[in-house]
Simulated scan of single mutants.
Amino acid sequence: MTNDAQEAFHPAPIVVLGVVPGDPPYRLVEINGEVAGPAYNMLDVIRLARQAGLTHLDLDDPAVVRWVGGGKYKWAP
């Protein structure tokens, strides 16, 4: 990988992982590489991001949020 490619890659600060089965099911949220906590819906993702000091929260922007294992409407296994 060249330096140009390394400089161009900027991972999303918020990563919402796949659904964890449970009662109720949830998704773990990572912010800047650290586990921030569970989210049971999109509002929890916003709450966790704000608690971490993030203010730009466009949930549709892949530069801000990466949805793993389903998009922002996937909250059940």
Rank of each mutant, 00 (worst) to 15 (best):
residue 6 Q to N: 11
residue 48 L to D: 08
residue 58 D to W: 01
residue 40 Y to M: 00
residue 50 R to W: 05
residue 62 P to T: 13
residue 22 G to Y: 04
residue 50 R to P: 09
residue 32 N to K: 15
residue 36 A to G: 12
residue 54 L to Q: 08
residue 34 E to R: 14
residue 74 K to D: 02
residue 2 T to K: 14
residue 76 A to I: 02
residue 39 A to G: 04
residue 41 N to D: 15
residue 48 L to F: 07
residue 68 V to N: 05
residue 43 L to G: 13
residue 39 A to R: 04
residue 63 A to R: 13
residue 66 R to G: 03
residue 4 D to H: 14
residue 59 L to C: 08
residue 45 V to N: 00
residue 25 P to Y: 00
residue 33 G to D: 09
residue 14 I to T: 02
residue 32 N to L: 07
residue 36 A to Q: 07
residue 41 N to G: 11
residue 68 V to I: 14
residue 13 P to M: 11
residue 52 A to S: 15
residue 5 A to C: 08
residue 26 Y to T: 10
residue 7 E to C: 11
residue 72 K to H: 09
residue 51 Q to Y: 06
residue 5 A to Q: 14
residue 63 A to C: 13
residue 62 P to A: 07
residue 14 I to Q: 01
residue 20 V to N: 12
residue 17 L to I: 04
residue 76 A to F: 14
residue 49 A to P: 04
residue 68 V to D: 03
residue 40 Y to Q: 02
residue 3 N to C: 11
residue 28 L to F: 08
residue 54 L to E: 01
residue 38 P to L: 03
residue 6 Q to E: 13
residue 50 R to K: 15
residue 47 R to E: 12
residue 71 G to V: 01
residue 69 G to E: 01
residue 10 H to R: 12
residue 11 P to L: 12
residue 1 M to H: 10
residue 59 L to V: 12
residue 35 V to R: 04
residue 48 L to G: 06
residue 35 V to M: 11
residue 68 V to R: 07
residue 43 L to D: 12
residue 15 V to E: 15
residue 6 Q to C: 10
residue 55 T to P: 03
residue 33 G to V: 06
residue 2 T to I: 09
residue 22 G to W: 00
residue 22 G to N: 12
residue 61 D to E: 10
residue 46 I to E: 14
residue 49 A to L: 05
residue 29 V to W: 05
residue 27 R to D: 10
residue 4 D to K: 12
residue 53 G to A: 06
residue 74 K to F: 13
residue 39 A to W: 00
residue 56 H to M: 05
residue 77 P to F: 10
residue 20 V to A: 14
residue 21 P to S: 15
residue 71 G to R: 00
residue 74 K to N: 08
residue 15 V to Q: 15
residue 77 P to T: 09
residue 56 H to K: 13
residue 72 K to Q: 11
residue 60 D to Y: 14
residue 13 P to K: 09
residue 45 V to E: 02
residue 71 G to S: 03
residue 74 K to S: 04
residue 16 V to W: 06
residue 54 L to H: 06
residue 75 W to P: 00
residue 53 G to R: 08
residue 46 I to S: 11
residue 55 T to Q: 14
residue 50 R to E: 12
residue 20 V to M: 11
residue 16 V to T: 09
residue 37 G to S: 08
residue 34 E to P: 06
residue 69 G to R: 00
residue 30 E to F: 10
residue 9 F to M: 15
residue 27 R to I: 04
